[in-house]
Each structure stands twice: as structure tokens, then as C-alpha cells.
Amino acid sequence: MTVDAPLAPGTARKRRARSRTTLTRSSGLGLGIALTWFSLLVLIPLCLVVIQSVDGGWETFRQTLTNPQTAAALRLTVLQAVYVTAINVGMGTLIAWVLVRDSFPGKRLLEVVIDIPFALPTIVAGLVLLSLYGPDSPLGINVANTGRSVFLALLFVTLPFVVRTVQPVLMELDRDVEEAAASLGASRFTTLRRIILPSLAPAITAGAALSFARGISEYGSLVLLSGNLPLKTEVASVRILTYIENGNEAAAASVATILLLVALAAIVLLQVLSSRVARRG
């Protein structure tokens, strides 16, 4: 295995490289097996997608992305994911706040409710939403086969992310500081803005990144709900599937690569934020 330490002069570098690993022989073997499995399952297949997308030169890439149907699908996907993430930032933080700071009978039930969208099979999630917001809606609201259905489905499946990242941070938050601020004459709004929000910000951003990544990649819950109408309710994942079914793997890989790049950007953002949190703690 290569050592990717930054180049430092002579012995200093050698000593650092050696002290950076504490692997024993058996744990080294374990790491080898784990990495092999991870590569075969995740890394190599994903790399093949990226390779396939640039295999036919940039021409396939450019052609796929300028296809009006694909461009519309990508625009819809990213736009709806952004809207949903914005809602989740507000609602998710509020839900986490109520779950941590408030106490009332049935609170543990709400904890389970938060996890339901994550546990429910996505195709069932679509069916579930269709029962209240579909053609037979008891509320008289029918969003099936409209742009709103994409928004609704994403809102459902991304519900847990911000709540679950903010909740633990909010629990750890020191109440003394808030009380001190209040005793020094800070209004509730000032305390919220100057004390609470800055401590929650990294967790909120991390949750938002997860929710966005999930949003742009959603497929299952949309199948029954959105009708997959070209140029109207068709999302990027559906475009990829259509390309695969038509045997056009290069085009499918191009759209997939765009999605991967966006997801990767979200992960990098997450990592940067969480290391910043660690440094602050």
C-alpha cells in the first residue's frame, strides 16, 4: 500500500509514515479482505459507470445532456431536490427541536414516525402517498402525474435526514449558555440567532446534503405517483432506466455520472463540515 503523506524531508517523513499505521498482521489481512469486497461491490462498478460515460469521447456525453428530454429531467430533479431540501432545513430543525426540548405523551411514537419513510420500501412509499394525494384522495387533493407529485415524494423520503442529524447535536447543546445569554438581557430571538443556530448549523448543513443527495437519486417512490411523463414529471433516474432498457448504456452512464458527481460533491461537503465540527468540539 502506498503512503500518501505529504512529502517532508528525509527521516521525518519515514518516521511519520511508520507511526501512521497501527495495523497488526491479522488486522491488516482483515483490511485487505474488506477492501477487496468493497472494491468489487462498490468502487469498481461505479468506476465502470464513469469510464463508460466517457468511453465514446465527449460526444456521447454532450449529445445526451443536450437531449431536451434528459435536460428537462435533470433540471426537474435538481430543482425539486433543492426545494425539498430547503423545506427540510426548516421543518427538520423544528421537528428535532420539538422532539428534544418538548415533552408530551406520544413523543416516542413520533420518533418511530420519523423513521417510517426510511424503513418503508420506496415503491410502497409511492403507494402510500397516492392513497392520500391521489385520484381517490379523501382530502380532494390530487397531485398524481403532476410536478407537485415529485416534490411530495421527495419530501416524504427525505424527512428523516435533517431531523436525525440535528437531534443528537441539540441534545448535547449546553443549556447554561442559553440561560446565561437570557440573563444578560438577550431576547429569545437573539439567543436563537447568536447561540443556538451557530451550534446547529454544521448538523443542519450535513443533513441538508444527505437530503439533497437522496432527493436527486430518488426513483422508487416516483414510479406509481408521478406517472413519469416526459418533460413534465420525469426525473433523472427514470431517464437512466429508459436508456438502460433501450440498450444505450453509454447515455445511461452519462446521466449517471452527472448524478454521481453531484452526490460526491455533497459527500465532500459533509466531510469538510464534520471535520470542522470535530475541531470545534
Binding site: L46, V49, S237, L241, L259
Partner: peptide, 15 residues
């Protein structure tokens, strides 16, 4: 967690 299920399928098919 951040990869679209459809992309997962595509990746496994390519491999």
C-alpha cells in the same frame, strides 16, 4: 447512500 438505486443497478450490470 448517495447513489441512485438505478445507477447502482447500472454499475453492477456494467461489471
Amino acid at each position: 447512500l448517495s447513489v441512485s438505486p438505478v445507477v447502482v443497478g447500472l454499475a453492477l450490470l456494467l461489471a
